[in-house]
Design a binder for these strands. Structure first.
Lengths: 189, 189
DNA sequence: GTCTATAATTCGATAGAC
DNA sequence: GTCTATCGAATTATAGAC
């Protein structure tokens, strides 16, 4: 499947890096191909040539792997804590998640990509953790509401009180919530 | 403070209603003044005349009152449930909250408006509920992460598993979370 | 592969007749 | 108050020279 390396691979990588930054910072519509090209020190027409259209560029720039750890292997009662710590790291090391979050609010392709990640990467693990495997999608969605809500308040909307939370505080407050969403036998436990 | 009714009040109201719909459905940048005017069956130049600019129109269309009930009066252990029920109603009856959520991701004025609502309307109540009144902003921000995250997943991104949750399920899963964020003595209780 | 030039739209905003 | 006409700027995308 892997093509032989093209001579333009360096340019393509620079474009993708610049695109991720711009989409993360400005959202889909405000991030212009011109600005991305300027950041990448490349002619705008090259971006079109390589990725066909703005949508194609976004699709390429928004591929993402959650890199979830093997939660089943860890102690069952530390699932929530492990997950919060993992997401804190991912939010802060990779701007693609922020880009998806910002763009997903107004761009259908971005919203769909988030759905794919949820369904393909988080739901299976949730199904393995919760009492009824059939509830995987539901448990994953619940966990996503809390994780995405924190990301939005802390990294996008930048509510002062959410930004000022220490890493430890985020972990301590959110871990029990995720633990319950993913492992509780029913909502009232 | 109240000016005498202008002859154009009906037009202004129609514009505001159309603006709320468009901003909620499309976000700030994709919602055009031309489209809003068309929906309101009014000339686009009238919108500019009445509200000065697109930003002015958004500011007028995004005024919002959470209409929070008097939580201190209710039974202390039903605070979470009461709050989830209230927000479910507000999300579904008033599109301004969705508009703010969508627009807040790329528009600074919208994000600021959300901060005002959090600080002015939710934080005081949180301060009255939690053990240490000084923690009002922090507790309110935590509650907001969960409430906004659910709204995003259910009404904006429309994750199937989040959309399919019944009203009862949303209440049962989220109520204990909000209860803990707002009333727990510390994160680990 | 790279760049210039430009097509084709669309937008917010303004000027001015009536 | 209402509308027509239009400006000026910005966008994605394309055609074609080198």
């Amino acid at each position: 499947m892997t093509d032989k390396p093209r001579r333009s691979d360096a340019s393509r990588a620079k474009i993708l890096a610049a695109a991720r930054e711009r989409f993360a910072a400005d959202g889909y519509e405000r991030a212009t191909i011109r600005a991305i090209a300027r950041d990448a020190e490349i002619d705008p027409s090259m971006v079109m040539r390589y990725y066909g259209s703005k949508e194609g560029l976004f699709a390429a720039a928004s591929e993402f792997d959650l890199k979830l750890p093997d939660l089943a292997a860890a102690a069952p009662d530390t699932v929530g804590k492990t997950l919060v710590e993992h997401f804190l790291d991912r939010w802060e090391e990779d701007e693609v998640l922020i880009a998806l979050l910002r763009a997903g609010m107004t761009n259908a392709a971005a919203a769909e990509r988030m759905q794919e990640i949820l369904r393909g990467q988080l739901a299976p693990i949730a199904g393995a953790l919760c009492p009824d495997p059939a509830e995987g999608p539901k448990r994953a969605a619940l966990a996503a509401t809390q994780v995405l809500g924190m990301a939005m308040a802390r990294y996008v909307l930048r509510f002062p009180a959410a930004v000022e939370l220490t890493r430890q505080e985020v972990i301590q407050w959110l871990a029990p919530t995720l633990q319950r969403y993913l492992t509780a036998h029913d909502a009232r436990s």
